[in-house]
Structures are given as structure tokens and as C-alpha cells.
Simulated scan of single mutants.
Amino acid sequence: MESPTRQAFKRFLKSPSGKVGLALTLALVLLALFIPVLKPYDPTTDRDYLNRLKPPSLEHPFGTDHLGRDIFTRVLHGSRISLQVGVLSVGIGLVAGTLLGLIAGFFRGRTEVAIGWLADLLLAFPGTLLAIAIVAVAGPSLQNAMIAIGVVQIPVYIRLARSMVLSLREQDFVQAAVALGAGNGRILFKHILPGTLPPLVVQATLSIGTATLEAAALGFLGLGAQPPAPEWGAMIADSFKGGYAMNAPWTMIFPGLFIMLTVLAFNLLGDGLRDALDPRSR
């Protein structure tokens, strides 16, 4: 009899969206890892005023911007920043939200009410608006943008983890552990937590796409990665604010295209993982 992991892997391979999402995600990850080696880049010394706003060509496949910078190089290096923000911010939300959700669902009572109020308070604000407020208070930087986006993600995982705990805590294997005298920590982290991981992993994968959009929005507003860092949202902002969108549309098209591809990649990967880990959802 095949193991559940092998069965899930086979189901994933049968998912067209999962395979496309995995291929795109791997391409983006490999690009982010190896582009500094294949094509080193220093954003502080890349200006070439003689080649300002040149259209796409063999020398500059994506054209150049208003400072003569090669958009192709900047977009490729921007993948590192966007993936870094997406993965780390989702990691913050996943760890903090899952821990709070586990505590709320397991201990119930006033603890659950307090954590529920926290989740409701965070959900009362639109996600991007809340991230903007946090960064505005803490100061614009890439690190603060990651923390802000992570905080926005927390209530999603609180609710998801809590709902899974409420379901799992009544299962026979948990009741057997209680009857054998297992401590709360052992029951929570050894018996209940593993059962919550499949939906949490799927949600985390989907959230990376959302985090990428929020990072681009903060970068567009000047609250994310600061110049001259090649961040996709900031690149679109430079084109928009400088009025180059009509005369040099490539300055906006290619950063926007990579944002779209990143979001699409992780959404498709999340769909494939959902089909693999929870066949009943299909």
C-alpha cells in the first residue's frame, strides 16, 4: 500500500495547474538564487544617460528607463527582493498566526475570546491600508514592509488554525492521548499540529502571491524597498510619476508582467497543492 505522501505527490502530478505553477515557481526561485552570479549588478553605478528611454533591443531586451538603466537586469534582480518579501512576510504571519490559532482553539475560554478580538481588529482594516499604516509609523524600508505584510497575514492563519484545532481536538487519537495523561504541549504540537499543516501549507503558498502584490503596492508608494534598489513596484512608480508610461510603456510593462507571473505561479501552485492534500476539495 502506498504511503499518503506518495499518493499526494501523484495527485499533484495529475494537476495541470499544479505542474504549471511548480514550473513557474522553480524558474523564479532559480532566477532569484543565481542571477547575482550569472549577471552581477550594482544599482548605484548603472546609470547611462546617453541611453535614456531606449526601446527594447538586442542590447537592452526590456529597454532602458529614464536614467538609462537596463530594465531587463533590474527586473531580474528585482525577483530576489519580491520573493524575499513574499516568503519572509508569509513566514511571519504563518508562525505567529498558527501559534495563536492553536492556543485559541485548544484552551478556549477567555484566551480564545482575546485572540479572536485581535484577529477581528486586524481584519477590520483593509490589508494594504493596514500595511501602509504600519510602515508609515515604523518608517519606510524593506524590513518594515516585510513586518507590516506579515502582520496583515496573521489573522488569516489564526482563524484557519483555530478551526482545524476545534475539529481535531474531538478526534479519537487526541482523546486517547488525553486519557493516557499526555501534557497539553505534547497534545498540541505532536498530535494536533501535524493535522493542521496541509491547509496551512496551501494557504501559505497562496499568500505569497498576495504578499507580492502588497509589497509592490508599498514599493509603488515609496514605503517599501528604497531607491536605487530594483523593486518592481518602485520601478512602476518611477515610470508613472515621471510621465513615461505613454512614451516609454516598456518601463511599466515588464515589471508589471513579472508581478503578474509571480502571483500566477504561486496561485497555481497553491491550487495544485490543495488538490493533492485535500482530494475532497476538487
Rank of each mutant, 00 (worst) to 15 (best):
M1G: 12
K10V: 12
R11Y: 11
F12V: 12
F12W: 08
S17Q: 15
T25C: 14
L26K: 05
A27R: 00
A27C: 06
L28I: 15
L30R: 09
F34P: 03
P40D: 09
Y41A: 09
D42M: 05
D48R: 13
L50C: 04
K54V: 06
P56E: 01
H60M: 04
P61K: 02
G63Q: 07
H66Y: 14
L67P: 02
L76E: 02
R80Q: 13
V85D: 01
G91M: 14
L94P: 11
G97R: 03
L99D: 01
E112M: 14
W117V: 15
L118C: 06
L123T: 12
A124F: 03
T128W: 01
A131F: 11
I134F: 08
I134C: 05
I134L: 14
I134R: 06
V135H: 06
A138P: 04
P155T: 10
V156R: 13
Y157H: 11
Y157D: 09
R159K: 14
L166A: 10
L168R: 12
Q171T: 15
A179W: 06
L180M: 15
H191K: 02
G195M: 07
G195A: 07
G195H: 06
P198D: 06
P198R: 09
L200Q: 07
V202H: 03
G209Q: 11
G209C: 13
A211L: 08
A211D: 09
A215G: 14
A215T: 05
A216S: 07
A217D: 02
L218G: 07
G224F: 02
A225D: 04
G233N: 01
K241C: 01
Y244F: 14
P249N: 02
W250Y: 03
W250R: 03
W250Q: 01
M252N: 10
I253P: 00
F254P: 00
I259H: 04
T262V: 11
L264V: 12
F266T: 09
L268M: 14
L269C: 02
G272M: 11
L273D: 11
D275P: 10
L277K: 05
L277T: 05
D278M: 11
P279W: 11
